[in-house]
Structures are given as structure tokens and as C-alpha cells.
């Protein structure tokens, strides 16, 4: 940002400038979080087709106690699942999360505690489930689930080969979930830092944040980040051209600063 806006309640220009940079990064991280969940959904769709499952969802850990929440889902009740949580160790997903063991159940019963709750809330009928843990850097970070088959029952149970396929899809999903969590962690940390400073006048800080975010150059920077994201998603040739163009601009800018005639 060209001009350093002073943070209310804090006269240290260096800190204000650091926070401004943090906000820029947080906003870019926010921009990235959304496409990550979209990528996870795309992966869920493709893998559900490969496994001949009608629904799929990703649950991630929520807090330190081992609770789970839905991060992404595809299928008829995907939207309703988004607000749901599963307490630690409860149900098949809870077990898979805490034990690290994948499992499949071909006849989930109506009395099964957790699914009964979810099904009651969504109007859905879970009959078959395949759940596999999501691992990243030796940590279990969530659970990948596939539910039911397309069409009307009776259905063939999930096979051992389909369990192996699910484990492989889990690898790719886990990488995306981890990237999502990093971006989110960064955003949460930034917000937490501002919230926990008791000396701050929160209204003034919020106004200050708005001011930063409304500033033309901040918006331009985010638009640039969006453009880059768009180009990166178009394909390899576009990415290469974009990279070359950007490097040329930097080279031009460097040479200009060395031999500037404009002062």
C-alpha cells in the first residue's frame, strides 16, 4: 500500500505497516480458500463417479477434541450438511477419524445414532457408507466419505478395490484440505491478533480495517490476485505466458529504476 494508514490506539508506524501487510495477505488467503473448496468438490464428484457412489463428503477436524465438521459435500443434501458437526468418536466417521482405520458398512441401520440425526435433519436415507481417513504429514486431518449408490436399492456393497480407490482419492483430497486449513489458519490468526488486544478501540480498528480494504490500491491488488488465479486455472500454456509476462514486467521495472529519467 502506498501510504501507511496509522492504526488507531497504536502510534507505532512499523506495527501499523506490518498489520496492513498482514491484512493484504489475509485477503489473498481468503480469495484462495474458496477455489480450494471448489477443487475439493470437483475431486469429490470425480471420485464418486469412479466409486459409483451417489453422495460424497469431506469432514475435517474441528477444535482439539477430535470433533468433525463438514467442509465439502456433493449430492442431494450437500448444502444442509455444511452446518453439521459430529462429536469426537461418534459414528463411523468419528471412529475412522480417531482410529485411522478405513471401513465400509453396507447396511447402515435406522437406529445408528449419528446417521439417524443427520438423516432426520436432511430427510436423506444413509444406507451404505465407505469412510477413509485423510492424512497429511502423518496427522489424520479428516475423513472422506462415500454414501449410497446411484439409482434405487438394492445396491452392491462397496468392494475392497473401491476402498483402495477411496484411499488414493483421500491422498489428493488431504493435500487440498491441508492447503485450505493453512489459508484459514492464517486468516483466523490475523483476526485473533486484532481481537485479543484489549487496549484497542475495536470500533476504531474496524473502521481502520474498512479504510484499508476500501483503498483503491488494496482493491487493485486483490483484483490482480484474482486475475492470477483465473489465469492459473486456465492451463499450462496460459500459466507459462503469464509467468514470462510477469518476469518481463519485473525486469523492465528493475531496469527503469536503475536508469530512470523521470525522477
Amino acid at each position: 500500500m502506498s501510504e501507511n494508514l496509522r492504526m488507531p490506539g497504536n502510534e507505532n508506524p512499523e506495527l501499523s505497516s506490518k498489520i496492513q501487510r498482514l491484512i493484504e495477505t489475509v485477503d489473498i488467503a481468503n480469495l484462495l480458500v474458496e477455489p480450494l473448496t471448489r477443487s475439493i468438490e470437483r475431486l469429490l464428484s470425480a471420485s464418486a463417479t469412479a466409486l459409483n457412489a451417489s453422495e460424497a463428503s469431506v469432514l475435517i477436524r474441528d477444535g482439539d477434541e477430535g470433533d468433525l465438521r463438514f467442509l465439502a459435500a456433493i449430492g442431494t443434501v450437500a448444502e444442509q450438511l455444511m452446518n453439521m458437526r459430529i462429536p469426537a468418536g461418534k459414528g463411523i466417521a468419528g471412529f475412522v477419524m480417531s482410529s485411522g482405520q478405513p471401513m465400509a458398512v453396507s447396511d447402515v441401520g435406522v437406529e445408528e445414532a449419528f446417521y439417524a440425526e443427520v438423516d432426520k435433519a436432511t430427510g436423506f436415507s444413509t444406507q451404505m457408507i465407505l469412510a477413509t481417513p485423510l492424512r497429511h504429514n502423518d496427522e489424520i486431518i479428516g475423513v472422506l466419505e462415500y454414501i449410497n449408490r446411484p439409482g434405487a436399492p438394492p445396491w452392491e456393497p462397496f468392494s475392497p478395490e473401491e476402498m483402495d480407490k477411496a484411499a488414493l482419492c483421500g491422498e489428493a483430497v488431504a493435500s487440498l484440505v491441508s492447503a485450505y486449513e493453512s489459508a484459514k489458519l492464517f486468516r483466523d490468526l490475523g483476526e485473533k491478533m486484532i481481537e485479543t488486544d484489549e487496549d484497542l478501540d475495536l470500533d476504531a480498528v474496524r473502521a481502520w480495517l474498512r479504510q484499508i480494504r476500501d483503498a483503491a490500491d488494496h482493491r487493485e491488488m486483490l483484483e490482480l490476485a484474482l486475475l492470477l488465479r483465473e489465469v492459473a486455472g486456465r492451463g499450462e500454456p496460459e500459466r507459462l505466458i503469464c509467468k514470462e509476462l510477469l518476469e518481463s514486467i519485473i525486469r523492465y521495472s528493475d531496469s527503469k529504476s536503475e536508469t530512470s529519467y523521470l525522477g
Binding site: S99, Q101, P102, M103, A104, V105, S106, D107, V108, G109, E111, E112, P157, F158, S159, P160, M163
Partner: peptide, 22 residues
């Protein structure tokens, strides 16, 4: 055996389960 193993399940019922766990 670990594919579609029929066994006891909480609540008095049975389930068909697949996994190395079984």
C-alpha cells in the same frame, strides 16, 4: 475374512462390514 463380515452392532442389531479391522 474382512469383506462384508456380518457381526454384532450396538443397539442389538447386526451389520455387514468391510475393513482390515474386521
Amino acid at each position: 475374512p474382512g469383506v462384508n463380515v456380518r457381526t454384532t452392532w450396538p443397539g442389538g442389531g447386526y451389520r455387514n462390514l468391510t475393513g482390515n479391522s474386521f
